[in-house]
Structures are given as structure tokens and as C-alpha cells.
């Protein structure tokens, strides 16, 4: 009788508790992207300065693709780091491209002015590009290698060090195994 009870507790109870405990270690809101290591979805976008840009035109260069909105605090927090990184890497076969989403155009332009952003920024009116990249939190950043393959994805605010390290990896064609995570991000 006693061993039956033991079996009941350890055979059923312990695995059940283990499963629940495992559940607590995971963030149910985390959406792991299936896109890392795959070819980046192509798109064409209207830039804030009126020009049009297709992703295919950037083939042969490493692309730093950043989805942002003017209302999102982590986007503000990373804006200066992004601009500084762009200035640092612009001579290196690296292109920075911002994609503004879920936003008003005037607010987006004001944001670009406020932070003195000099790299190209597209306006994704219908959020189609964002959905195509499986974007759910803002900001999200994708780094593409010279062949247009996604080598890294970061969700949340980015720091200059990470940008630098990941761009170097992409220049060497290395794919990160996992996506990165900033300590805070906005969703709407």
C-alpha cells in the first residue's frame, strides 16, 4: 500500500509539478521568430524623404533593419545609439534602414528630426512589412547579411555594443543561434 502511494506521488505528482515549474520559467508573451537564418522577406517602401527603396537594391551589403514608432519609449531610448552606430559603420558596407510602423507620419518625422537621424527611414503605412517580418513588439531589429539572409533579430532597445558585435557577425556571414532581447519594449 505504501509503495503504491509513493508511486502515485512520484510517478504522477512529480512530473506534473516539473511541467508546471518549467512553464514558470518561460515567458508566455515571447514569440520566438522562425525567420532567423532564413532569407529576409522582400519589400519596397516609401522613404521619409520621398524616394522609394526596395530591399533587393541593398543586396551585397549588410542591412540593419529597425522597426520603430515615435510613441514607443524604448525606441526613443535606442535612437541615439542607432544614429551613433550608423555614423560609425557607414563606411563599412553597412546600410541602416528604419521602418516606421503603427504611427502617424507627422509624429514619425518629428521623431527623426528630434534625434537627428541621418539614415534612411521608410513609412510602412499598412504595417504589411512588419507583419511580413513577424513583428510584434517595438522596437524590433533584424540584421541581414550580404546575401539577404537574416542573421540576427533583436526585440527591445539595442545598445551600441550589441549593434557593433552583431554587424561584425553579419559582415562575416555568421548567423546567431538565438534572438536577442532588450530589457524593455512596447507593444500596442
Amino acid at each position: 500500500m505504501a509503495w503504491k502511494r509513493l508511486l502515485l506521488v512520484f510517478g504522477i505528482g512529480a512530473p506534473l509539478i516539473a511541467v508546471l515549474a518549467f512553464g514558470f520559467t518561460r515567458d508566455p508573451r515571447e514569440i520566438p521568430s522562425p525567420l532567423i537564418g532564413r532569407q529576409a522577406p522582400p519589400f519596397a517602401v516609401r522613404l521619409a524623404d520621398g524616394r522609394a527603396l526596395a530591399l533587393a537594391d541593398l543586396r551585397g551589403r549588410v542591412v540593419f533593419l529597425n522597426f520603430w514608432a515615435s510613441w514607443c519609449p524604448p525606441c526613443r531610448a535606442e535612437a541615439r545609439a542607432l544614429e551613433a552606430s550608423w555614423r560609425r559603420h557607414r563606411d563599412q558596407d553597412v546600410v541602416f534602414l528604419g521602418v516606421n510602423m503603427q504611427d502617424r507620419e507627422d509624429a514619425a518625422r518629428e521623431f527623426l528630426r528630434e534625434f537627428g537621424i541621418t539614415y534612411a527611414n521608410g513609412l510602412d503605412g499598412g504595417n504589411r512589412i512588419a507583419i511580413d517580418y513577424g513583428v510584434w513588439g517595438i522596437p524590433e531589429t533584424f540584421i541581414l547579411d550580404r546575401n539577404g539572409r537574416i542573421t540576427y533579430k533583436h526585440i527591445g532597445a539595442l545598445g551600441a555594443e550589441t549593434i557593433h558585435a552583431k554587424l561584425e557577425e553579419a559582415l562575416r556571414g555568421e548567423v546567431s543561434r538565438r534572438e536577442g532581447k532588450g530589457d524593455y519594449r512596447s507593444i500596442r
Binding site: 514569440i31 520566438p32 521568430s33 522562425p34 522577406p41 511580413d132 517580418y133 513577424g134
Partner: peptide, 9 residues
Amino acid sequence: FVSKYGEWI
């Protein structure tokens, strides 16, 4: 949608 967001969606 699964190809963009994974099974999660």
C-alpha cells in the same frame, strides 16, 4: 502566418 510568427500564432 505560421511562417512569420511560428506555431505560436
